[in-house]
């Protein structure tokens, strides 16, 4: 993880760095997992979610973590094997942290049936494991980086930064990052009853406005508002190029993720197509923000 230290070939230094990485992962799992660990609906989902949907979610999480680890890992991963290792570590951390916190919160008690305990931990481990991976990249190696940026793009060598200095993000990977961002925010809000309640309260007119606002926010986040990491469009390119190539596909990705999460949590069962669409539009609103943020942050 730390290039200078690794080159020394010092075993103690390496294992210490690895432990620090684990600590950051655990911190990330907590930081990103706490809102869900303290949500009542997710505890309940732990025992009533259909087991094969939960199984599918747990399986889908594996390639997702591997791809994410390949991009931002516990270490600067270059090979698929390393990415797999990091993904497994993150998943393990997610499970451990979820279980520990649920026990601390008194939500898991010895007299409960095993399937209830497993279900509760399993469903929480998905966002927690994503958080563990993000924790490594977002909490790690930040010290002194801001000054470096201020110094006019000074070369940062390898100082603990998980993101290489020059990378070319392929289009599919860009869409993948948006999917991760959308999934993460969706998992935060989808289990709550408010999402379907909002969908029931809204008329189709509200939904139309929401679609427009979601797309506008997505585009604005990435291209207009000058956040750190904002994407620049070359001057001679019209704005609608990026709108068609990134923002609209991004919104579609957010919608698909919304449908998937709603379906996983059983919110679409026995519901008319229009109602399904309305719920997905509501959920795609935070999803769109998450997707746009992921493009900036990751």
């Amino acid at each position: 993880m730390n290039g200078a230290r690794a080159e020394r070939g010092n075993d103690v230094g390496e294992s210490r760095d690895f432990l620090i990485g684990l600590g950051r992962g655990a911190a990330g799992a907590m930081l990103f997992g706490i809102p869900m660990l303290m949500t009542m609906e997710l505890w309940q989902l732990g025992f009533y979610i259909e087991r094969w949907r939960l199984f599918l979610l747990l399986i889908v999480n594996i390639p997702l973590l591997i791809l994410l680890a390949h991009r931002i890992g516990f270490e600067r991963t270059s090979t698929a094997a390393e990415a797999c290792r990091d993904a497994i570590i993150a998943y393990g951390l997610g499970v451990l942290i979820s279980a520990a916190i649920l026990i601390m919160l008194g939500d898991i008690k010895p007299h409960m049936p095993l399937s209830e305990m497993l279900g509760k931990v399993a469903i929480q481990s998905v966002p927690a494991s994503i958080g563990a991976l993000l924790g490594r990249s977002q909490l790690g190696g930040q010290a002194g980086k801001d000054e470096d940026d201020g110094d006019g793009e000074k070369d940062q060598d390898e100082g603990g930064d998980a993101v290489p200095d020059e990378i070319s993000t392929s289009y599919s990977r860009e869409l993948f990052l948006m999917a991760v961002g959308a999934l993460f925010l969706n998992l935060n809000v989808a289990p709550t009853e408010e999402i379907i309640l909002i969908a029931y309260k809204m008329t189709p007119w509200h939904a139309l406005v929401m679609i427009g606002v979601s797309i506008a926010i997505m585009h604005g986040f990435v291209y207009a508002v000058a956040f750190k990491g904002t994407h620049e469009i070359p001057k001679e390119t019209p704005w609608w190029h990026a709108f068609f190539r990134f923002t609209l596909p991004g919104y579609l990705v957010a919608m698909l993720i919304s449908f998937y999460v709603l379906w996983t949590f059983g919110r679409l069962d026995d519901t008319a197509p229009t109602q399904m669409l309305m719920s997905a539009i509501v959920l795609a609103f935070p999803g769109a923000i998450g997707a746009a943020a992921a493009r900036l942050i990751l």
Binding site: S168, Y171, R245, F246
Partner: peptide, 26 residues
């Protein structure tokens, strides 16, 4: 395609046709 250099993101000038196709479908 997006190029990230020195923590700045820039969109490539010559996008692949698949980006336009995806954009149109979306």
């Amino acid at each position: 395609m997006t190029i990230t250099a020195n923590k700045r993101h820039r969109e490539a000038k010559e996008p692949h046709w698949i980006e336009w196709a995806t954009g149109m479908v979306s």
